[in-house]
Nucleic acid binder design. Structure first.
Lengths: 196, 196, 196, 196
DNA sequence: GGTTAAGCGAGACGGTACGTCACGTCTTCCT
DNA sequence: AGGAAGACGTGACGTACCGTCTCGCTTAACC
């Protein structure tokens, strides 16, 4: 059955109210009752729709980041397919740091309320993308583990820390430094040490 | 006045009880009332001693990680001073991943209950150590940002993820791959791209 | 238009399910959703048919007590017309206590969910019957008020209490004692005190 | 430990607020949250103190009816000891109808939210009083059952019904008619019929 | 026997109150 | 006098139920 008209209206109202309150005060200072009140809706409705606070924040995140998914899978190069791996990685991190920066509050809320990052479908997609590109350029490296390390730089804590001094671009540069170093590294240079 | 005997006894009892319960069930599933009960103490005592849940977990962490501090600042090489930067970094990450792995539950609890990582004295010390060594070996790189990225790999989420498949050593290897790549990278190789 | 076949089938199924659940667990422990499920029907159907919980229980009561109505208005003596008032009253209370005893759970449910007893058509009919007979035998008494008092003995609480010890017949006896005392009382014996 | 000062203050505030709201709107139209708000207290406090709505109303009833207990057990005749049973019964019902009339709303609330009347300590005390006096005057009757019947007249529904027309005194008169009839009835008059 | 519109069934939905839980505080008692 | 004890106040959470609403289906009456 299609979503009822009033349901859709309330869904939007709740998301908008949640977005505003969460970005303004942070997830722990906002109760779902406040969200409900701000949306002009009863508390039960919020739970009915989004199960709990994590669900609500998750839906918000999806709304924000869902569109980005397309950009790096189907969009034009250098973000999308068609460019060499290194350039796609650089573009990906640039775009991602930017995206996360613009949604820090929500991301932080999400990290606090959700479980393991690695169980999150969005993170999983990002990781597959990054490790795929790494593997493409350097099949001899442990792309999976390296992917996790690189994406670790996108924890909201760190982003906030860098944003405080207005130096988010340093983070991008550093990430690009790392990828460059990895892709340029002579093959087998690290062989003997992996056994440690 | 020195700490009274009963106070010290209770302090220890609370820490032991908290440790056991937290590692068993995670921070959100354990109330301080349970901790108090398990320690054979009243709730007020727990708060009197540790202020709140974050304080209690912080004390536990300190107890566990405090000793390690000495190892990398004053201990014997390659962890302590005396070895080349790269070896010290390798040793540091090896030891740290091991340490965190053995205390994953507590670390996760700490991450959930504390504020920004970057405001935490332990993290700060780690970061100063890592970025110091990086700077020593490669003064031309942004050691500070790179330090944060490398330490990002020690988020409990990721450790847990790697431990699930018993592959924590892959994480160590990957970290060493990254440091090796960074330290071996031709100077200035990344210059032009940082401006992106 | 006559009631549709499926509608009739569902109506019966709902009544049967409601009856069973209500007598088993009491009205507050049974949701209409449970009733619907037990009847193999959607919740909306229950509301469509019976408006609300009070309506459903009311319908059940009607089903049970409706037949009795005939007994005391048109049936054979001593319950029906033809016998002296005292005997009819005795027969009425005997029959009524028995009837209520056999439907205690439903009666209790009904009392809880309906409004004032005195607004209920069934109760009204009972009261008119009883006060009519009283007035017939003793026009000098306040038959209306006495009728309410006598019928007060049929509150489910009291019936349950008496049934617990298997002494419902004591209640019948006591009621008959009261009616006998009232009808035998010398006229005007109470006159002076009513002014109190 | 004695009740803390703030606890006592809150207890009183809650009772006052509950009293006012309940008598004004009835129990089903008043939420404990409203009571809490009106009392200037958090919802949790109300539950902490009174467990649930039934508990709160029960406490209110106790407060109102507790004092009356003394009147008929230790007070001056004709209510208290010293007068003949019949006069004490008359006085008791007169006083009780008056008391209930003045607290109809609360009594109705109590009946709706509590369980069986017969399990209620106040009702039990009333019943023991009434049946004791009946037994004293007429040991040959079933004082226990008759006591329940007489007290049945004090159901709030009936009181409300009588109050509607300003005829609560008719109820008192009728009750006195019944007791007079019972006490005056020739001994053994009802013998043969009890076997029915 | 096919058509159709009114009644009916289904269950998602909005709303309200409830009771629970854990936190952190406060007073009081004990050592 | 400092520490321990636990009653207390607080507010968010998630649950349960009610009654409503919309939409799709069925069925019985009519062509």
């Amino acid at each position: 059955m299609a979503e009822r008209a009033d349901a859709a209206r309330n869904r939007r109202a709740i998301l908008r109210a949640a977005e505003e309150l969460l970005t303004a005060h942070g997830p722990d200072r906002v109760s779902l009752e406040q969200v409900a009140a701000a949306a002009g809706v009863a508390k039960g409705t919020v739970f009915h729709r989004f199960t709990n606070k994590a669900g609500l924040i998750g839906a918000l995140i999806m709304e924000r980041l869902g569109a980005f998914q397309q950009g790096y899978t189907e969009g034009p190069p250098p973000l999308g397919p068609g460019a060499p791996a290194r350039e796609r990685l650089d573009a990906f991190f640039t775009a991602l740091v930017d995206l996360v920066s613009r949604n820090v509050a929500l991301m932080a809320a999400h990290e606090r309320t959700s479980g393991h990052r690695q169980d999150n479908p969005i993170y999983t997609a990002w990781h597959e993308h990054v490790s795929g590109l790494l593997r493409e350029a350097r099949p001899d490296l442990d792309a999976e583990a390296l992917g996790h390390i690189l994406l670790g730089a996108l924890h909201s804590d760190l982003i906030v820390h860098m944003l405080r001094t207005g130096e988010a671009n340093r983070l991008v540069s550093a990430l690009q430094t790392v990828t460059a170093a990895l892709l340029d590294q002579p093959r087998g240079a690290n062989e003997g040490r992996a056994a440690l």
